[in-house]
């Protein structure tokens, strides 16, 4: 179906006949239509998202009941416990693990996205689909695959002994490195995609100009390419960091239950210890880290945006 409007250039529909902004045109009805469209969705999100989050925040100041449940008696003991080294160290080490995973993902993901962005059109699509494909398979099975690969008689040890590099199978499973590998494997596509989008948008003329002005490739990368793709870098980092921090499945399957993360701690407070107030406090700590991260991201994006304005 082709109407005249489909052929009209973008923005033509917003010709100043009415003087309206093109994106948010006049409401199509009064308050009744507003309510009919927005009411159900907002209502649903308030009841099943905002209220549950409010409950978590509220529970942090109450005491646990003797048989689970909550006694509505105000206390600060949950927060005192949070800063007990026994728990606080786990929160800190989880942040460290998530940060390490994010950095490695960035180091591998950036060159990968860079190469993909430079491929011919047909290969570009194939390369991108190949990045996303593993992501659409069951998450638990992808993690489980590493148990097979890294176990004593698994492929990695077989290859290493076969090549004569080692005599005895290495203990590759159930340590911090295994957890990072699993996290990296699960969330690397989330780093590559925003990076690809950012690099793809980059005007190749800028790099040419930099080279023509005598900058060597390394200098061009640090002064032109990287600063201009920083928003993509930040988005990718948030996309990887967030699911890493709250994860409890990967530490459990690949960490062997010995090296736990804050996600395991939260899960156990809810399903085993039945200490919901303390579990809520730990969840609030995770939320606090993420909010901090989003603020940093917004701040860095604004600084970067300002730099771009000056350049323009």
């Amino acid at each position: 179906m082709t109407t005249e409007h489909d052929i009209a250039p973008p923005g033509a529909a917003a010709r100043p006949t009415t003087g309206r902004a093109p994106r948010r045109p006049r409401a199509l009805g009064g308050a009744a239509a507003r309510l009919a469209f927005l009411g159900p969705g907002i209502g649903y999100l308030i009841v099943l998202l905002i209220v549950p989050l409010a409950l978590i925040v509220g529970y942090t100041v109450f005491r646990r009941g003797r048989f689970g449940g909550v006694v509505y008696e105000a206390t600060t003991e949950n927060f005192t416990r949070l800063f007990d080294p026994l728990y606080f160290d786990i929160v800190v080490s989880s942040v460290r693990t998530a940060t390490l995973t994010t950095l490695i993902a960035l180091l591998i993901g950036y060159p990968t996205a860079y190469v993909i962005a430079g491929l011919p059109r047909k290969w570009k699509t194939i390369a991108l689909v190949a990045i996303v494909l593993p992501f659409w398979t069951n998450f638990l099975i992808r993690v489980y695959a590493w148990v097979i690969l890294l176990s004593g008689p698994g492929l990695v040890n077989e290859t290493l002994t076969g090549a004569g590099l080692i005599d005895e199978p290495l203990q590759l499973l159930y340590n911090q490195g295994t957890i990072v590998t699993g996290l990296l494997y699960s969330y690397l596509p989330l780093m590559v995609l925003p990076l690809y989008a950012a690099i793809e948008r980059l005007d190749p003329q800028l790099r040419e100009a930099s080279a023509n002005l005598g900058a060597r490739p390394v200098r061009t990368f640090w002064s032109v390419t990287l600063p201009l793709t920083l928003p993509g870098v930040l988005t990718g980092c948030v996309f990887v960091f967030v699911p890493c921090l709250g994860n409890f499945v990967i530490p459990e399957i690949l960490g062997g239950g010995r090296s736990i993360m804050v996600g395991n701690l939260i899960r156990d407070q809810f399903l085993k210890a039945r200490d919901w107030p303390f579990g809520s406090t730990l969840a609030l700590a995770v939320i606090a880290v993420l909010v901090l991260l989003l603020f940093v991201q917004a701040w860095a994006a604004r600084i970067n945006g300002g730099a771009e304005d000056r350049r323009a």
Binding site: L38, G41, I42, L45, L48, L49, I50, V51, P52, L53, L55, I56, Y59, V242, P243, L245, G246, N247, F248, G263, I266, R267, F270, W276, G279, S280, A283, V286, I287, L290, L294
Partner: peptide, 23 residues
């Protein structure tokens, strides 16, 4: 409202999960 619409996508699944369990 825009932020409310985005929240479920950026919230860690574990936080949403325990919130709903509690609810």
């Amino acid at each position: 409202l825009d932020a409310l619409g985005l929240l479920p996508a950026v919230l860690p699944d574990l936080v949403l999960a325990i919130g709903l369990l509690v609810f």
